[in-house]
Nucleic acid binder design. Structure first.
Lengths: 233, 233
DNA sequence: AGGCGAGTTTGCGCTTTGACAAACACGCGC
DNA sequence: GCGCGTGTTTGTCAAAGCGCAAACTCGCCT
């Protein structure tokens, strides 16, 4: 009854090197679900009973502080694992996941984690590499926030988004999902006002073209120069 | 010839639940080394050939940006693993480790990682939990830097230090290793000047007592109030 | 077609905090 | 015991960018 075909996940980095048979096994306990844009896939603090893999769409991972401040920890791209609290020995989700667009994701019960890891060591290794990579990225983000001005941080964030979720547009590269000034502010630790001002300025200089929930980087190289420019050298 | 006794590591979280025999096996390829205060245990960017466990002392993990800015990612306490690039699938160290005081650390060749993990699943699980916990901490740090003022960040940092490496002093809790204003600044993304001013102010208010490379928290509760106090609510 | 609302733009004042500078003090080594 | 260097204190100044406020505009829903 699953109807899940192994071609869904064949070719994904996470399952690289697994045989067709292995892929079938992986999918046995997986359930696929559609998550409409804006819906919460899981909720910060909730009991983590499953882990997920994004088949299509884009997911925003958001942490909310006790005081209600939101911070976007990362965007998840197609083919990535997310909500893997189980891999970090956590029983609750440390953040919420929200579908940035209509999404399709696979979900496995946590108990499958140990199982799959034992059956397919390559899967375990790849998963832990993912966590390691995220630790690196997050530490890089701390460095950025410690040493860079807001302008550089936003430029870096846009370049990262374009790299991870860029789609060729007529006059540049467009970020492949709707993103507000507020979102960008929450990624970079600033306010939507400042983001708005900077995007306007950059638009004048021909670096980007932006509109309602939309950003197109028209001069990636120019933006890189902005990102590299240090003032506190 | 090793002379390493299993009592060195018995009782450590990382090796919890391992038999005496297992502990002996763990130590077979371990080498112990003394690292004088201020010396580098490993260097950012260098080929990672070993992973480490701190037996005694305190280690500062420092990242340096291409422009030369330094950020202290964390302090390692006794009994903790560090330099586990191998666990994250990295071939080079993403940061440097510097002995904050005279230290003793065990080192294993990377090849032992897979070995130990296979032999003692509990070891692997605990190690990955460590990485997961560090990812959490680092993300919490990003939140802090996004949403809190410098004063709150420094208060939080001090409280964390006191919790992790506090030692009872006559009139409060002292941080157990020499730490400069510059160090605190590099932990919190600010400048030593600002740290100095705030510590002075706090000293006046009776929250801390500080001197050359030394900080004593005399009123942890009061400092917590400072840490919680939000201005951008 | 029109209205509503979310998202955006923009102005202004002000606080926080960084930059620069200079003097100071503690402790170690000679 | 003295001098030097590292670490610390403190002052002044400047400006980045936040808070607040208000206007605006595009899309979408009815």
């Amino acid at each position: 009854m699953t109807g899940l075909d192994r071609t869904l996940i064949a070719g994904l980095e996470t399952f690289r090197g697994l045989s067709d048979q292995a892929l079938e096994r992986v999918l046995v306990h997986a359930r696929s679900a559609r998550h409409p844009k804006g819906s919460e896939i899981f909720s910060q603090g909730a009991e983590a009973e499953s882990f997920f893999l994004l088949l299509s769409g884009h997911v925003r991972v958001v942490r909310t502080s006790p005081e209600g401040h939101q911070v976007i920890a990362r965007y998840i791209n197609e083919g990535e694992l997310f909500g893997i609290a189980v891999a970090m020995g956590r029983s609750t989700f440390p953040a919420s996941a929200v579908a940035a667009v209509d999404c399709v994701a696979l979900a496995w019960p946590n108990r499958e984690w140990a199982e799959l890891q034992a059956l397919f060591p390559a899967f375990g290794a790849s998963a832990y590499q993912t966590i390691g990579a995220r630790l690196q990225e997050t530490q890089a983000q701390v460095m950025e926030m410690s040493t860079e001005q807001v302008e550089q941080r936003i430029a870096h964030a846009l370049l990262r988004l374009v790299k991870q979720a860029g789609r060729k547009a007529a006059d540049g590269i467009e970020i492949d999902f709707p993103i507000t000034r507020q979102d960008i502010a929450e990624m970079t630790g600033t306010t939507l006002h400042t983001v708005s001002r900077l995007l306007s300025a950059w638009e004048q200089r021909g670096l980007v073209r932006s509109g309602r929930q939309k950003v197109v980087v028209t001069d990636a190289h120019g933006l890189m120069l902005v990102a590299e420019h240090r003032r506190r050298d």
